[in-house]
Amino acid sequence: MEYRTVLTTCTYCGTGCGLLLEVMDGEVVGVLPAKTHPINEGKLCIKGWNAHEFIYADGRLTKPLVRKGDTLEEASWDEALETIANKFAEIKKTNGPDSLGCFSSAKCTNEENYLLQKIFRAAIGTNNVDHCARL
């Protein structure tokens, strides 16, 4: 029997409300507004109150997929990473680093944004890095 709450930050808009994920036996079962959070002071909008629902929605990706002809097929992490490494190396070799680019994500963390731009700037050698800030 486990019930605990994990203080985190809402993943929807940029306001940055504090919310508690209610965890029961390893599963998120609900959301409570963080009462002592300086931004939302114990209040949330309808998206925040239901921020846990999508976590367990059908259709979550659970395994790496690699295209084989017309279909995407389940693959191991090693196979997926190797495919990326080979294909990126090949494109870079024939067309130069600026023939590769990435869309980073305003949904992901600071750390993840840092890592992706570092991959493209430092490991691949292009500044083709952008995200949907404008959208």
């Binding site: 605990r4 709450t5 409570l32 959070h37």
Partner: peptide
């Protein structure tokens, strides 16, 4: 009792918790 529903201190924030 087999569990106690109370409040736990989490950094600066008090949050509900089931103590066991």
């Amino acid at each position: 009792i087999e569990g106690f529903l109370g409040i736990r201190k989490n950094g600066l924030h008090p949050v509900p918790h089931l103590f066991t």
